[in-house]
């Protein structure tokens, strides 16, 4: 039985959504310091779009369910713990595929008036 629209129209269930894609990249950029709040800030500063903490948090947990990130609780100097997120090898692989797909699609296009190879 078909359980979702995405499945029904044949989108693989493991395609990266845009926010998932961007969240993975932001986590990657932050490296060891990647927990929810700085990821939100990073997304906002890099893309100019302000996502709510709730949205980003839900995306992170979904990525974790998919095995693309893993999380761990670590103590901070202030005495409270934080949930840090790190991109797994599977996550890195998925990012690489996505980038390749985009680059292939962009190859030779110049609709935006800029030279791309």
């Amino acid at each position: 039985m078909v359980t979702s629209l995405r499945e029904a129209i044949g989108m693989g269930r493991d395609t990266l959504g845009e926010l998932e894609h961007q969240t993975l990249l932001a986590a990657l950029r932050l490296g060891d310091g990647a927990y929810t709040a700085p990821i939100v800030t990073e997304l906002e500063e890099r893309t100019g779009r302000a996502h709510t903490l709730a949205a980003v948090y839900i995306v992170l947990r979904r990525l974790e369910d998919k095995g693309l990130v893993r999380s761990s609780l670590e103590d901070t100097p202030g005495g409270r713990d934080r949930r840090y997120f790190g991109v797994t090898p599977a996550g890195l692989e998925r990012l690489r595929e996505a980038r390749l797909a985009y680059e292939n699609l962009w190859a030779g296009l110049d609709v935006l008036g800029e030279r791309r190879s």
């Binding site: 927990y35 709040a37 800030t41 302000a50 709510t52 709730a54 948090y57 713990d81 934080r82 949930r83």
Partner: peptide
């Protein structure tokens, strides 16, 4: 954990954009 993270972000917004905008942001969260 999340509450604390929101508070930290709120404080940063307060310093940067003033209380009206920070408050609106917090409500949205």
């Amino acid at each position: 954990r999340l509450a604390h993270e929101l508070e930290t972000l709120y404080a940063a917004r307060l310093a940067r954009y003033g209380s009206a905008k920070a408050l609106a942001w917090y409500r949205r969260q």
